[in-house]
Amino acid sequence: MQKDYSILEHPSDLGIEAQGSSLIEAFQNAATALMSIILDLKTVTATECRHITVSAIDEEQLLVKWLSEILYVYDGQRFACSEFNIAELDRTHLEASVRGEMFLETKHRPKLDVKAVTYHQLSVKENDNKWIVRVFFDI
């Protein structure tokens, strides 16, 4: 999977801009960006798989809900994902399998607590066959 994202500044928090040649790839890269803010992904071995299904009213909310779900899986179920494979994606629905392992204080290196995914300056855009998504996190 292509890793293609950058970190955006915010006076108190952090954002990301992720790109991809398809919307699926951009969403996958956004998920990688989120988890790489939270912990050192090099310390995660992708041994287990989980399925994620999300529905929303539009693409932008779908992005928020997709990333919120990954955050919940980490913070609520203590499952750290490092690989993201979106099987189906349309404007309002997404189905994915994510791979990772249960969080272990002794093995993994957490970097930053992300509290939530926000709607601040949220955007999902296509330009010359390239998809760019932008989203900010509450830290």
Partner: peptide, 17 residues
């Protein structure tokens, strides 16, 4: 902590709709 963060996430979503 995460409980409050998730409650806000859930109801923000509900309020969008």
């Amino acid at each position: 902590r995460g409980l409050g963060h998730q409650v806000c996430t859930d109801y923000l979503d509900m309020m969008q709709n």
